[in-house]
């Protein structure tokens, strides 16, 4: 590579970094602005917006609600996704590909379409809008990701490990829980965090399937309509920090575990 191309490459690289991070930096900065309006110039700084959101029953309620939905969704998605992966992985049967394609479809259907169809579907099932409906919608959306990640991991589990467990006296269930599950742990952590983020972040499905109690994204949307205020930036910053911590933790623990299992 010539000197000029190298310089050009690093300019492009940094331009891209700036392009990615400026919006985030702006958002975080505005959350500390001592004024009701978002925008420059900034004349004073304050932490009021943060103390306000931590005292606001509305924000805290939405946060708790969203968290509860995300946790339930993650749990359900992991159980169902792992079950599908474990069932589809080793067994050979007619129409396996079809079942697999059907199971994966919710992941690629546009959010708005799946939201509308789910809304119709819950009416048909006579499930009220609200938490259960949102959890149902999120789970259907997340299961394919879990199944794919778990299946990829499962494919690398040597058959002899299960056989060794059986050989040493484990029945199928014990072999699954004591050998297969620990082997899947990094995949489950990764998929679980991904489910949390997908669910926490989801707007369209939560909007269509929710009732009076808004999830955090829906609340932010509602607040936006009454004008942009730094309060929104403060909420978003908190969400950003939590998400980043979760992501980094998942990445590190997956890396650590993958290292240990590559025997």
């Amino acid at each position: 590579m010539s000197r000029n191309t190298r310089i050009l490459m690093s300019v492009i690289y940094w331009a891209f970094v700036v392009y990615l991070f400026v919006p985030l930096v702006l958002m975080v900065t505005m959350g500390f602005k001592d004024s009701k309006f978002i925008g420059f110039p900034i004349r004073g700084w304050t932490l009021d917006w943060y103390s306000e959101i931590f005292r606001s029953a509305e924000v805290l309620g939405a946060f708790g609600y969203t968290m509860a939905i995300a946790l339930s969704t993650t749990f359900l998605s992991l159980v169902i996704g792992t079950w599908i992966a474990a069932f589809l992985g080793p067994h050979k049967f007619r129409g396996k590909l079809l079942v697999f394609a059907l199971a994966c479809m919710p992941a690629v259907i546009p959010g708005i379409i799946s939201a509308i169809s789910l809304r119709i579907y819950i009416q048909f099932l006579q499930i009220d809008t609200g938490m259960a409906a949102i959890i149902l919608g999120h789970t259907i959306h997340n299961v394919p990701f879990v199944a794919l990640v778990v299946m990829a991991r499962l494919a690398t589990l040597p058959k002899s490990h299960i056989e060794a467990a059986r050989d040493l006296g484990a029945d199928q269930l014990v072999a699954f829980s004591r050998v297969t599950l620990p082997y899947l742990k990094p995949a489950l952590i990764g998929a679980g965090v991904f489910c949390m983020l997908l669910s926490f972040d989801d707007f369209v499905r939560s909007f269509f399937l929710g009732s009076y109690q808004p999830t955090l994204p829906v609340l932010i949307f509602a607040k936006l309509r009454s004008g942009m205020s730094p309060e929104i930036n403060a909420i978003s910053t908190v969400v950003l920090v939590i998400t980043a911590i979760l992501g980094i933790w998942a990445e590190r623990s997956m890396r650590r575990m993958n290292k240990g299992t590559s025997v």
Binding site: P158, S160, H161, E163, A164, A165, R166, D167, L168, G169, A170, D171, V179, P182, Y183, K185, G260, T261, S262, V263
Partner: peptide, 18 residues
């Protein structure tokens, strides 16, 4: 296999990595 008193050493050893 779990109900017979016979044990096996596998070619790849199949040690439980965790």
């Amino acid at each position: 296999p779990n109900r017979r008193n016979v044990n096996m050493v596998f070619q790849d050893y199949a040690l439980f990595p965790h």
